[in-house]
């Protein structure tokens, strides 16, 4: 890959400063960025590592919320998030053990891969993305495939998840990449049910509002029997047609409701 300058700040303020230079890019766990750079799909002139910033790491319980700092690895989330088992299980199912020891929640969300697991949890939980400059509601954060509300040089410092009454995440794994061919996160709150789908929508992660309305009335698989989202809004590739993905969304949502 092309060479670049490497900077290892110790505080968020130093990182934000280092990112002001033209061509700078934050490096978190690197599990997507490094392969991307090898393929020359990205060629930043300066990488600003977020891995040595203590204030970017850890999990805390705060009232009825769980706050996960941006550079917390998937392995740490899977081990340390005790009060939101569906989220811990999701984190423990990303990639493989080596990837989970490097990859981070902030990195995954900032990348917003249309088949990544975390965006569905964030959207279904109505989580808040906290950056070095402001807070962004999940509903405003995801803006399409690999696109978010983050500005240039803005860093996700933490994510705050309201803890649902019950929740579950089910994914149908693409067996080679272990990304979600389709993944569904269902979360039930006092105010209602939210359903977020990854791996399927042509614009990336989305809320399946038709299912949300029915499940808010009756939280049972029968409430959405035979229902699938419109196939013409699903993505298709070698591994699954839009119709196949639409069908899987229905099946996985029912299973997630049963598992929650």
């Amino acid at each position: 890959m092309y060479d670049f300058e490497f900077v290892g700040p110790k505080t968020i303020a130093e990182a934000v400063d280092a990112l002001r230079a033209e061509g700078s890019q934050p490096l978190s766990g690197g599990q997507t960025l490094i392969p991307t750079m090898k393929q020359r799909l990205a060629a930043p002139t300066r990488l600003v590592s977020l891995a040595e910033i203590d204030e970017m790491k850890g999990v805390q319980r705060k009232n009825n919320c769980i706050r996960i700092r941006g550079a917390t690895t998937h392995a740490e989330v899977s081990r340390n998030v005790k009060d939101f088992p569906a989220l811990a299980k999701l984190a423990g199912g990303i990639g493989d053990p080596a990837v989970r020891n490097r990859g981070t929640i902030g990195g995954s969300l900032a990348n917003n891969d249309p088949s990544a697991c975390y965006p569905s949890a964030v959207l279904a939980s109505a989580a808040t993305i906290i950056t070095n400059s402001h807070e962004i509601a999940a509903d405003d954060f995801f803006q399409g495939v690999f696109t978010t509300a983050l500005a240039e040089g803005e860093i996700i410092t933490a994510v705050e998840f309201p803890v649902p009454r019950r929740a579950a995440y089910l994914k149908f794994e693409q067996p080679a990449s272990r990304f979600a061919l389709v993944g569904v996160f269902v979360a039930q709150f006092e105010s209602g049910v939210r359903v977020a789908v990854t791996g399927a929508g042509e614009d990336g992660v989305f809320r399946w509002r038709e299912a949300e309305a029915l499940l808010s009335g009756s939280f049972s698989p029968d409430a959405i029997a035979g229902l699938s989202p419109p196939a013409d809004q699903m993505m298709g590739d070698l591994f699954g047609t839009p119709e196949y993905r639409a069908h899987l969304v229905g099946v996985l949502t029912k299973r997630a409701v049963a598992a929650a």
């Binding site: 490497f6 290892g8 490096l27 690197g30 599990q31 490094i34 392969p35 990488l47 590592s49 891995a51 392995a75 493989d96 053990p97 080596a98 990837v99 020891n101 490097r102 080679a176």
Partner: peptide, 23 residues
């Protein structure tokens, strides 16, 4: 993908093809 480059860093499994030495 393949794990032929697996090493432990501070006791944790990582793929050494997907980390920079300077990190």
């Amino acid at each position: 993908q393949c794990g032929a480059c697996n090493v432990l860093v501070d006791g944790k499994l990582i793929k050494s093809c997907t980390a920079f030495a300077v990190e």
